[in-house]
Amino acid sequence: MRVNDGSGGAEVVRVVVVDDHPVVRAGLLGMLGGQPGFEVVAEAADGAEALAAVARTRPDVVLSDLRMPGVDGVELIRRLASAAPGTRVLVLTTYDGDADVLPAIDAGAVGYLLKDSPREELFRGLRAAARGESVLAPSAAARLIERVRAPARPPRGPLSEREIEVLALVGGGASNREVAAALFLSEATVKTHLVRIFAKLGVSDRTAAAVTAHERGLLP
């Protein structure tokens, strides 16, 4: 952060905005540009552009979406951790599922907010991120708490070989119909396997099942 001599010594947070949607970027630029204490030093449409912008401007915070073409948000966070360790990354996205929150935090993001957050929450989050403090949307915090508790839960029975096959396909993005075709099963049988998998892993949806199975080393 640098000192803004024109505002009585107030600290100015220098920000790079990263989002593949031009309208979203324009909205963020307009919002931050009109707010004292922030300076948008660059914008980028994907992770590759963001890496170049950070190398050029050395901002305090990168405010980044996650799901972008090419170099996505998680890969951007990983690369910045080594390329620009002094720059913090605050995620601003629409998604708060396990498959989004956990990889972003693991990669090194200091904060995770949703795009429907109030303006003041975003401003506070940026200031906190610039100081190296964590800031999490309530749903993201809940995901992290759940992950911390999960290893302490006793296993609810091992997965069968068939259940592992089903889960591996589901984790790869296959629909129930595609799983059924690949394993020569009916869709009803696939649904039954998923219900049993969820119960054994202590989860309630497909994404959480895949993430939990990977964390416990159940999938190759």
Rank of each mutant, 00 (worst) to 15 (best):
V12Y: 01
P155F: 06
T189W: 04
G70M: 10
A180M: 08
R124L: 15
R2V: 13
L126V: 08
V71E: 10
R67N: 14
A141F: 05
A137L: 00
P85R: 04
D19V: 06
A109I: 11
P155R: 03
R25Y: 02
V203G: 12
V179N: 04
V166C: 13
A55G: 14
R119I: 13
R79V: 13
A174L: 12
G8D: 12
V170A: 11
P22L: 09
P155M: 07
L80W: 00
A129C: 09
E49G: 15
A10R: 08
R67Q: 14
V61D: 05
R124T: 15
K191V: 13
P59W: 07
D96R: 00
K200I: 11
R156M: 12
R147C: 09
V101Y: 00
A208Y: 02
A210W: 00
S160R: 03
A55N: 06
D46Q: 04
L159H: 02
A181H: 05
V91A: 05
S204G: 12
L114C: 11
L113Q: 03
R14Q: 15
D205P: 04
A142Q: 05
L185T: 04
S175D: 06
H193C: 13
E120S: 12
E165Y: 01
R25F: 07
Q35D: 11
T94K: 02
I77M: 02
S186G: 15
A45K: 01
I145W: 06
T189A: 15
S64C: 11
G202M: 05
A137Q: 03
P118E: 13
V41M: 03
V54H: 01
T87S: 09
V40C: 08
A199V: 10
R2F: 11
G33M: 07
V89L: 07
S175Q: 07
V148K: 04
A130V: 10
A50K: 01
P220G: 12
N176L: 09
A142F: 02
G125D: 06
A26F: 09
G9W: 04
G132F: 01
P103R: 00
R196Y: 00
A210Q: 02
V40I: 08
A45E: 14
R2S: 15
A50F: 02
G97Q: 14
A10Y: 00
A129L: 09
G125A: 10
V91Y: 00
V18D: 07
L201N: 02
T189N: 07
L29T: 14
E75G: 04
R149A: 15
L169Q: 08
F123N: 02
R14K: 12
D98P: 03
T189F: 09
G125L: 06
A140M: 05
V15Y: 03
T94Y: 12
Q35T: 15
G217Q: 06
F38D: 09
V18I: 10
A53C: 11
D20K: 00
V179S: 04
G125F: 04
N4P: 02
A107L: 07
V17D: 01
R216F: 13
A142D: 08
V89E: 05
R147A: 13
R216L: 14
P85W: 06
L28Y: 01
A84F: 05
A42Y: 00
R216W: 14
L219W: 03
H193M: 13
G34V: 11
D106L: 06
G157N: 05
A137I: 10
H21L: 14
L219Q: 07
V101A: 03
R2C: 03
P103K: 00
A42N: 05
I164D: 05
